[in-house]
Amino acid sequence: MTSLAKRESRSPYAVIMGALLFVVALTFIFPFYWIITGSVKSTEELNAVVPVWLPAQVTGEHYERLFVEPALRWLLNSVLMSVLSMALVCAVASMAGYVLAKKRFPGRTAIFSLLVGAMALPKQVILIPLVRMMNTMGLYDTLWSVILPSVGWPFGIFLMKQFAEGIPGEMMEAARIDGAGEVRTFTSIVMPMIKPAFGALAIFTFISVWNDYTMQLVMLASRANLSISLGIATLQAEYSTNYGLLMAGATLGSVPIVLIFIFFQNTFTQGIALGAVKG
């Protein structure tokens, strides 16, 4: 640190800004805190005129009520949807991203432009036709109706292409001289090289499918097939002021995904930063 930087960091301006940032950060944490503490407060505490910051006694009654609903089934549905999308997106996007980055073939530029162009369009324009399609295919109200469209979205291909461009051409040349076929080259040279991209894309897909409330809302209908988000939303419509129940549901819906995010934060943030740096 230079003396200049030291002096700067102590200036009143910097102190005020730092304090301000901290206060703003607290308001961003507050909803999460309010959900978790709210899920274990007694009903009197939840409806108290003066807010209760910490429950005097932790109660499990709202969770007991929550599990009268198929809440664990909803959670399982969300996990299944997110994991299957994640696996499919990674497989499909890595293959496509690799050839778009490393191979030269007729139609390459046209295909890539089409993929990028589609990403700029609002997803919701395709919502209604998608629902009709899923109906025709007999997939409406199944987890596949949420999974399949998420695999069609080209963001992953884009991210994988960015990473794959960094693979040195000599490595692939060497593999070819050693007699490796295209599939072997891909699995033994390309895949290890783009490992960080797999991590980023996997978490990105997991979180975005888990939280894609709009898609879940239009695709899933019967109570046993809901996702955890949609399940809580349904409970909110039915019991709008039973805050204990709603907070218990919100805890169940948000804590797992927040833990996953905290655990993989660096992989995730590097991934979205890289995806944005368009080549």
Partner: peptide, 15 residues
């Protein structure tokens, strides 16, 4: 600052 995105719309709106 990423927390509200990760939590998802439904828990955020409910609270």
């Amino acid at each position: 600052f990423y927390l509200p995105v990760v939590m998802g719309s439904v828990p955020v709106v409910v609270v």
